[in-house]
Simulated scan of single mutants.
Amino acid sequence: MIPTELTYREKLQPWCIVRQLPKMQNIVVARFTRRNDAEKYLSVLRRLLPTAPHKIIFASMLDRSSAR
């Protein structure tokens, strides 16, 4: 059985950078405790991968099945 709840570590890091894929799929690229850290990491990602769409989300109540 695959657990659908967030782990304790994931709950401590609610800010996520998500890469958007076709067919409404998402992959969590990185997790952060502070939004400021996520924004800085996102700016680096946008410089390294300018054509890949990434977003910052707050995922404290998000379960794993919808984040992938």
Rank of each mutant, 00 (worst) to 15 (best):
L45Y: 02
L62I: 10
S66Q: 13
Y41T: 06
P22E: 04
R19N: 05
L49T: 15
W15E: 01
R19C: 07
M1N: 13
P3Y: 05
R19A: 05
V29F: 04
A30Q: 08
V28Y: 01
D37H: 06
P50T: 04
A59C: 10
A30D: 07
L45E: 02
R68D: 12
S66T: 13
F32K: 01
A30N: 05
R9V: 11
R34G: 09
N36W: 08
A38I: 01
A38L: 02
R46I: 05
V28C: 10
A52D: 15
N36H: 11
R47A: 09
Q13Y: 06
A59Q: 02
R68W: 08
R9H: 08
E10S: 01
D37Y: 04
A30M: 09
M1G: 14
M1W: 08
P14N: 00
Y8W: 13
S60I: 08
L62M: 14
S66M: 14
L49F: 15
T51M: 15
N26I: 06
I2G: 07
L62Q: 12
T4F: 11
A38S: 03
L21I: 04
M1K: 13
R34P: 05
A38D: 00
C16H: 02
I2S: 12
P22V: 03
T4H: 11
I2F: 08
W15Q: 01
R47W: 06
T51G: 07
P50K: 02
Q13H: 11
M1H: 10
R9M: 11
D37A: 07
T51I: 10
N26G: 11
L42A: 02
R34T: 14
V18A: 04
P14M: 00
L45S: 01
L49M: 14
R34I: 12
L21G: 04
R34L: 14
L48E: 15
Q13L: 09
D37V: 01
P50F: 02
L21M: 10
C16D: 02
I2N: 07
W15M: 03
I27S: 08
P50V: 02
